[in-house]
Amino acid sequence: MKHWLWGLLAVTPVMLCGLLAAVFWLGWLPNRVAYLRADLGTIFLLFGLLASGGLTVEWLRWVREERSHRNLVNRLLAESVSERHEFLRRLDHELKNPLMAMRAGLANLTGTELNAPQREIIESVETQILRLGRLLTDLRKLAELEIRPLDCAPVDMSELLQDVVSMTEERPEAEGRHITLTLPQVPWPLPPVPGDRDLLFLLFHNLLDNALKFTQPGHKIEMRAFEDGAWVVVEVADTGQGIPEKDAMLVWNELYRGENARGVPGSGIGLALVRAITERHNGQVFLRSRFGQGTVFTLRLPVYQK
């Protein structure tokens, strides 16, 4: 319940009863019986004060509960973030030494006389070690993102989105996709957003990268941006295969790979990063998808206030 509603509720009895008391005291009634008027007036006023007092006590109790509840939620959230961060830090530490030893060992082998099949085996093992190393970096990056300070400055969104789209178009994976970018020009262009340009670039890159992965040549990808009050809204829409309903809530979790993502390259970190970057920028991100028709990611970022 809202504060103003509680306030209104608390003052209503005393106001009403005060009015009634005044009516009796001042004798605005047709039947003028003096002692009854005076007594009834006092009784009404007392009743009104009691009722308002009771409601005020309830109001205060509600405020206290609300506050302690919010504190608890915040504390639990902070604890879970720091626990996760601590876990990832330890994982990073425990895995990087064995990975380092493996890389050094392989580098030693590469320096010896090897035949072609042996060389091939070593190369494939090296590829897998690199992959593990990258996964480790990604997870650490995600954990750091939640706590490290941002390099915040006003970011020109039109320029940023053009940059991301032109880079995506140049990628070999974009072949055959029709990528369009719609930016408002009149009456004014997009306002700037406060943020870390490199992270925002990565965010939109990941959304487009995701769209490329789940579309085929001939499909369309649209990026459109507009201003909505104190927000800049960016949508990334595609006519790809869509996300099954049961996966839609889970795609934001790290390492989660939807059923239809099997066979598509990726580590399951891309969208988790999108979520983390959005949250660090005080924004919101959500998705709508129809399986077989396509997906729209909607991102809202606060406009830069001078």
Partner: peptide, 15 residues
Amino acid sequence: DETAITANLAPFLER
């Protein structure tokens, strides 16, 4: 402190 690292990295650096 990881012998697995020194044992593998040292010969590489020697080479």
